[in-house]
């Protein structure tokens, strides 16, 4: 599966990669901000987009809206430690399939991939 991860923090992207199963079944791309994400989206046509919520210019939900607006057909997952109702609701309203609580670990990522597959 082609996965695009959008997070301004390099550490967070590294953590995500570190906990991904190393079975060669997934291709991971990274982006740090909206223009970057839109470009990668057009190039790679990811099937799953994992977005951080809390980013400097646009939050993850706003970015997903932009990507959906640009015509991307993919599943969206929000990655955040801010799991309050308003945030979760705004994500679900835009069509996110799941909110994963930060910090990630192997169990959370395995569960996520199982659900998406």
């Amino acid at each position: 599966m082609k996965i695009l991860i959008v997070d301004d923090s390099m550490t967070s992207r590294m953590l995500f990669k570190a906990y991904m199963p190393k079975d060669g079944q997934h291709e991971l791309f990274e982006a740090t901000a909206l223009p970057d994400a839109l470009e990668k989206m057009r190039e790679m046509r990811p099937e799953l987009v994992v977005l951080d919520y809390n980013m400097p210019e646009y939050n993850g939900v706003e970015m997903a809206q932009a990507m959906l607006g640009a015509g991307l057909k993919a599943k969206f997952v929000l990655l955040t430690a801010n799991t309050q109702r308003t945030v979760v609701d705004s994500a679900l309203a835009v069509g996110f399939i799941q909110v994963v609580e930060k910090p990630v670990n192997a169990v959370k990522i395995a569960a996520l991939l199982a659900q998406v597959a």
């Binding site: 923090s9 919520y53 809390n54 955040t80 430690a81 801010n82 799991t83 309050q84 930060k102 910090p103």
Partner: peptide, 9 residues
């Protein structure tokens, strides 16, 4: 950020 986001929740 993760810590304070959790605090926000």
């Amino acid at each position: 950020n993760v810590g304070l986001s959790r605090a926000a929740t």
